[in-house]
Nucleic acid binder design. Structure first.
Lengths: 244, 244
DNA sequence: GTCGATTCAATAGTGATATCAATGTGTACA
DNA sequence: TGTACACATTGATATCACTATTGAATCGAC
């Protein structure tokens, strides 16, 4: 999986400190860093410091100008779709806000992705999707939550990847992290809800049978539950409702 | 607008050549570049070549390993949401494929964004949205297509920005480019369709009145037209149907 | 003799340092 | 109030030593 970002190079290690620090607000927008400061703080050469800044710059987290320094940009400028940035936010205080944004995004994208998959998925992958939904049924009933979650993740990843839209597919990793992240946030019920299981099954069969509107509706049902749980969290305590 | 990426620094100039070259397939996946080669080809120092590679690396366009070189990664690895990458594709042969992906993405995201805006937009911005839709009516009837397009872009940008979801908002620039790009692709009718104009108006009033479902439906109508035009392009010649 | 493990050297990226150029800010001065 | 200058800071280059990986050459065993 090569999950965590590569720590093998120095500039990545610097990045792994400065990036989260910016995201966490340790350096607020408008704050000015200098290359010399970075060299000192992390004990690295100018070469390495500059490379780290270049990457931050390409994410629009900072802008670098002569005589001024490296300025932290306003949140609205950030490349919020950058996977690395998303991970930094998920790892910090922004976690719950980031999960919320991502869940809304997911709820928007997955239904159309399911529809597209019904039209464009490879035959073998349609079968695979059906298998996954059956395994989810089984694992769900037996209460094997961890294995269930992994199959759930694979299910949603497969739908996105088979949508035939590279941008939908590009969200697969992020959606996987959202699904994995919900467990730690106590958004998972002890047993997956029957309703959700049935909806997954409907998505799978609709994709197999090439019925885009059915697939879209079923997926919309899955996502609606998830978003509802999110809204519910806003107004009261989590009681662990749905799953997706 | 600061449209074109910054050409002021050397590494950005290298990036502006290498990036599009990779995207265009001049260096196919698996192709190995070397820092020395980049230095030679672009007449820059090692530092500059390295910085360019770092940025490409953060976009997952390439991976860099000692003793191996800088390897172009497979398309499926790319950070397809990176604004710079999107622009490179829009500027090259991938243009029409990229417009298609983005249009599908947009069709997925804008309706929920409109619903969210109906719940969360600032009062002043709700008024602004209404103003924009009225101006669009006027400009559309008078056939002032260029001004119309700019208001259209602002309309959709405003909805996304007022959705209260940073990730929806993060698509504003990209959607703006799609809307601007359609003109060059002959996807715009000589006169905006009445239907589309009315739908924009419905979105604006629904957002003002705090009616998420109405806003979502109306926006879905707008997007459906756009996607239909896209599908139509697939099977026949463009006759310039809708707009959004 | 073939197959496998080990060794080793060539090679390309990685990191550090020194140095100069370019430039915009802020201040001091007219 | 306007202008010019000093200087801090990034931008860029050149060059050094280090490190890790590959792939071939070598060695050994079956």
């Amino acid at each position: 999986m090569a999950r965590s970002r590569d720590q093998s190079t120095l500039h990545n290690r610097v990045l792994a400190h400065v990036g989260p620090a910016i995201v966490a607000g340790a350096y607020p927008p408008g704050h000015v860093l200098t290359l010399e400061g970075l060299e000192r703080d992390y004990g690295v050469s100018r070469t390495v410091a500059r490379e780290a800044v270049r990457v931050l710059q390409s994410m629009r987290l900072v802008s670098s100008r002569p005589r001024v320094g490296v300025t932290v940009l306003d949140t609205t400028q950030w490349s919020v779709f950058d996977p690395q940035l998303i991970r930094w936010r998920l790892a910090g205080d922004e976690r719950s806000a980031q999960l919320r944004s991502l869940t809304e995004l997911r709820a928007a994208v997955e239904p159309p992705a399911a529809a597209a998959a019904a039209l464009r998925a490879e035959p073998a992958q349609r079968e695979r999707l059906l298998e996954l939904s059956e395994m989810m049924q089984d694992l769900g009933q037996r209460g094997e939550l961890d294995a269930f979650m992994h199959h759930d993740i694979e299910f949603h990843r497969l739908v996105l990847e088979q949508s035939g839209n590279e941008m939908f597919a590009g969200l697969a990793d992020v959606v996987a992290e959202v699904l994995a992240g919900r467990a730690e946030h106590h958004l998972m019920p002890a047993h997956p809800r029957r309703e959700a299981l049935r909806l997954h099954s409907h998505v799978a069969t609709a994709v197999r049978d090439g019925l885009p509107q059915v697939a879209e509706s079923a997926m919309r049902g899955i996502c609606a539950e998830v978003v509802a749980a999110l809204d519910h969290l806003d107004h009261s305590v989590s009681d662990g409702t749905p799953h997706g």
